[in-house]
C-alpha cells in the first residue's frame, strides 16, 4: 500500500512556479463581495457534519490522534502510542475534557486505549516515518484577516510539510479521527485557500486522512480548487445567521 507521503513524494516534477498574481486575483474576488457583508465574521474549516456533534469520547479520540500526529512529526518512535498521546495531552491541558478522561472507568479506559492504538496503526501506515528533510510542522495555525477585519479565516493544519519557496512545495494534511464524510473535500480546499492567502504562494497539495478508516483524499492545488474554496466561502459568508 502506498502511503500518503509516498504519493506526495512522487508528485509531478513540473511543480508550478509560485505566482503572486493568483493571490491578487483571489483577493480581488473576495473584496468584490465582502463589501456587502454586515458584521465582522470569523470562519474556520468546514466541519464534518455527517457524523453529528462529537461525544466526549469522540473528542478525546480526536485530541489523542492530534497528539500522535505531533509525536510523528517530531520523529518520536512510539512504543505505546495511545498512552503517550494521552499523557502528553494531559501534561499540556486542563478543563472539561481532562475531567472526562479522569471519569472513565477501567473498562472504558481500556477500550479507548485499544481504539487509539488502532488509529496509531493507520497513522503509521498512512504517514510512515516523517523524514526531517520534509520540514514537518504540526498544528500550524493560520489567521488571515481580510477586508480590514470584516472577515477572518482561522485554520489549524494538522501536518504541514515543506516550506514556501520558488516552486509550489508545501503539502497540507488534515487528520481526522472520524470517517471521511461529504465535507472532506471542502476542508482540504479551505486549508489550501488559507495557506495561499497567508503566504501569497499556492501550496503543492492538500489532503484529508481518516485515522479511523485509512481513507485519504488528496488534491494537487490549482486555481480551480482555490476558486471552489472561494465559492464555498462566499456561501458560508452569505448564508443567513
Amino acid at each position: 500500500m502506498t502511503s500518503l507521503l509516498e504519493s506526495l513524494r512522487s508528485a509531478p516534477h513540473e511543480r508550478a512556479l509560485s505566482d503572486e498574481s493568483v493571490v491578487r486575483r483571489l483577493l480581488g474576488r473576495l473584496e468584490s463581495w465582502l463589501d456587502s457583508t454586515g458584521e465582522p465574521l470569523t470562519l474556520r474549516a468546514p466541519r464534518e457534519l455527517a457524523h453529528g456533534p462529537a461525544s466526549a469520547l469522540g473528542r478525546l479520540r480526536g485530541v489523542a490522534v492530534h497528539q500522535m500526529v505531533r509525536l510523528a512529526a517530531a520523529g518520536y518512535d512510539w512504543d505505546n502510542p495511545a498512552r503517550d498521546a494521552l499523557s502528553t495531552w494531559r501534561a499540556e491541558s486542563e478543563g472539561e475534557l481532562t475531567v472526562e478522561l479522569g471519569r472513565l472507568d477501567a473498562e472504558e479506559r481500556a477500550a479507548l486505549l485499544a481504539e487509539l492504538d488502532a488509529h496509531a496503526v493507520v497513522l503509521r501506515r498512512s504517514l510512515g516515518p516523517i523524514a526531517p528533510g520534509w520540514m514537518p510542522r504540526a498544528g500550524q495555525r493560520v489567521r488571515v484577516v481580510l477586508g480590514g477585519g470584516r472577515l477572518v479565516l482561522a485554520d489549524v493544519v494538522d501536518l504541514m510539510l515543506g516550506v514556501v519557496g520558488e516552486h509550489a512545495s508545501v503539502a497540507l494534511i488534515d487528520v481526522t479521527s472520524a470517517p471521511l464524510g461529504p465535507g472532506a473535500e471542502a476542508r482540504l480546499a479551505y486549508h489550501a485557500l488559507c495557506q495561499t492567502l497567508r503566504t501569497s504562494h499556492v501550496p503543492l497539495a492538500s489532503a484529508v486522512l481518516s485515522s479511523a478508516t485509512g481513507e485519504v483524499i488528496h488534491r494537487y492545488v490549482d486555481e480551480a480548487l482555490l476558486d471552489e474554496a472561494l465559492s464555498q466561502l462566499r456561501l458560508r459568508v452569505e448564508e443567513p445567521a
Binding site: R70, L71, A73, A74, G75, Y76, T88, R137, A138, V163
Partner: peptide, 20 residues
C-alpha cells in the same frame, strides 16, 4: 520522553518558520 518529543516538535515548527 513523549512530552520531550512534543517540545522537539514545537521548537522544530518554530525554527522551520524562521527557515522559511
Amino acid at each position: 520522553a513523549p512530552t520531550r518529543a512534543i517540545v522537539i516538535g514545537e521548537a522544530a515548527t518554530w525554527a522551520t518558520s524562521l527557515v522559511e
